[in-house]
Design a protein around this nucleic acid. Structure first.
Lengths: 109, 109
DNA sequence: TATACATATGTACATATGTACATATGTATA
DNA sequence: TATACATATGTACATATGTACATATGTATA
């Protein structure tokens, strides 16, 4: 996977992403780091769902679901499609799908 | 990326991973969701480093680094190799590398 | 065995964060 | 315009979590 430098060389510095990027990445992963949001993401893995459907499916209050959807929206993990007075949510792009898959693989060793 | 069911069908339930797995996944991603840990992981991306090297490189206290390394160890993101009174840390496996890469890709749209 | 040194860890505390509760916003229908 | 309804959001609060500080643990050398 990568070439190792002799220990002690501290060559890593050159590869370190900037502080700003590291912070953005951490914030990005933080979004995945919550039980409710993970369940919402999995529910949307192959379905477009309404807010109330998500709430019912996951036994969460409508408020809690909306709050988490907001975070998912702001971080571009999900997309909304307005349909009259309802809102249809779906995953935003394939990265989300792949990251979830990688995580599952890691857990199953 | 996936086949959409008509909205309202709530077919998602069948695909939902169990609560236990969802919790484990969330905990796994939570590990990536911290500035200090992300920087440690990037520093180890292509180097095996001592604790004190990490501390110096990232301008963190030895204590803070050790605490975070412990979390990374427990979640199998890094590996330790004892070398006398020092400890050499490296990434545990390729999933870690790939997950970091996916995240970077997502951020750059 | 005594000492120096690298790393690990216990504890306290400040801050971050998820959720409940209440209410605002926006849309369709009469 | 009034009403019903779905969703979004403000706020408070309990809990989770990262770090500083102090100290324990483990190893090499004299």
């Amino acid at each position: 996977m990568s070439v190792f430098h002799p220990p002690g060389s501290i060559k890593a510095q050159s590869h370190l992403p900037g502080e700003k990027l590291s912070l953005e990445l951490a914030d990005f992963y933080k979004v995945f780091g919550d039980f409710s949001r993970i369940r919402i993401l999995f529910a949307l893995l192959d379905n477009e769902l309404y807010v109330n459907e998500l709430a019912e499916l996951l036994s969460m209050s409508q408020s809690a679901v909306s709050h988490q959807l907001r975070i998912l929206r702001q971080n571009k993990l999900v997309r909304v499609r307005k349909d009259g007075k309802t809102s249809l949510y779906s995953l935003d792009d394939d990265h989300v799908y792949r990251i979830l898959t990688e995580g599952l693989e890691h857990l199953s060793h």
